[in-house]
């Protein structure tokens, strides 16, 4: 049986043989995409004309080949059909001019991801570390499309990585507007799912209007100060997912260890790999303006730790050193 590495080589060499004539002038690339909490290898075609291309991840095709004992020819035929379909279904998008410093700076916002689980991804993007999280910059392209600002984009646009991160954090709530409300109210608004109406708990959700990558509000002290005023008491922060955080007032009398165990269980059973944010719970000290993380080993909250890497040198020092690592 072919190894996955050999499989990728075979796909790169022979994919075009299974594609129509008008594909033959294109170049085949095996691309390595660093997604939240996972590294995925895919196939994408480039041509002189096209600025966009679908990417199909190869792992599922490789697994089908192995599990169903299919020939590589059968897989390549399927891949070629799927690629053409993906190309036809790809949304029409006006790609931004990524050389435009003004456009990037004006549209920056942030995403929070887990620091340890995203070491490969973090080699490709400027970021700042806060406790066990990393804050990375993004821009949206039209409705429902988003792109990470990578070191490559910084280089092309002539923008400094540290500046990008600082501007993204400063502008975050202009682009990604915070939304804070009770979880019951938010579930009531959706009308989509049957939910436990009998459960009346003073839990709150903090996210953004899009409900997408809204967990980055955890890094905005002004937003957390507003939350502290609204809640009117001390509270824990549960890292529900990369899309939102949950605010649990301390008057609920649930210990941080119990809350942490619940978060871990839900992280392992409900979340998709790309949605995972953290297993650790937090509290915000509004007097000190400090985000503290609970240490299960010490049984107490620890002081906020912020680390700013040298985002200028990181690009140079990591060239050619992007090695794959298994996701969690």
């Amino acid at each position: 049986m072919l190894s996955f590495e050999k499989f990728k080589e075979e796909v790169k060499l022979h994919f075009l043989e299974y594609c129509p004539q008008d594909y033959q002038m294109r170049d085949v690339h095996i691309v390595r995409n660093f997604k939240e909490n996972q590294v995925l290898d895919g196939i994408a075609l480039s041509s002189k004309e096209n600025q966009t291309a679908p990417v199909l991840y190869l792992k599922v095709y490789y697994e089908d080949m192995c599990e169903m004992n299919l020939s590589i020819e059968t897989i390549l035929k399927r891949l070629a059909v799927d690629y053409q379909r993906a190309e036809n279904m790809m949304p029409v998008m006006e790609m931004p001019n990524i050389q435009s410093r003004e456009w990037i700076l004006k549209n920056l916002y942030t995403q929070a991801i887990n620091y340890e689980q995203n070491q490969e991804l973090l080699q490709t993007v400027p970021h700042i570390q806060i406790n066990d999280l990393a804050i990375i910059p993004r821009v949206n392209i039209g409705k429902y499309s988003t792109i990470k600002i990578t070191h490559d984009i910084c280089e092309i646009s002539g923008l400094d990585g540290d500046l990008i991160v600082a501007m993204a954090m400063q502008n975050n709530t202009k682009i990604s507007k915070p939304v804070f409300g009770s979880m019951n109210d938010m579930l009531n608004e959706s009308f989509l799912t049957e939910y436990p109406e009998d459960v009346l708990m003073p839990l709150y959700v903090l996210s953004n209007e899009e409900k997408h990558y809204g967990a980055s509000m955890i890094a905005d002290k002004q937003v957390l100060d507003s939350v502290a005023k609204s809640v009117g008491e001390e509270f824990y922060i549960l890292p529900s997912s990369v899309h939102e955080i949950i605010i649990a007032p301390k008057s609920m009398w649930i210990s941080p260890e119990e809350l942490r165990q619940m978060v871990v269980e839900i992280n392992r059973t409900i979340l998709q790999p790309e949605e995972f944010l953290s297993d650790n719970i937090y509290q915000y000290d509004a007097r000190k303006h400090e985000l503290q993380m609970y240490s299960p080993a010490k049984g107490k909250m620890e002081r906020e730790k912020v680390k700013v890497p040298d985002n200028k040198d990181m690009k140079k020092s990591n060239r050619g050193q992007r090695k794959p690592k298994n996701s969690r």
Binding site: H29, V31, N33, G42, A44, S46, N50, Q51, T52, A53, P54, V55, L56, Y57, D82, A86, M89, M90, P91, M93, M95, I98, S145, I147, D152, I153, I156
Partner: peptide, 8 residues
């Protein structure tokens, strides 16, 4: 050249 890859 930068290609923008779009997930299916």
């Amino acid at each position: 050249k930068i290609i923008f890859t779009c997930e299916e």
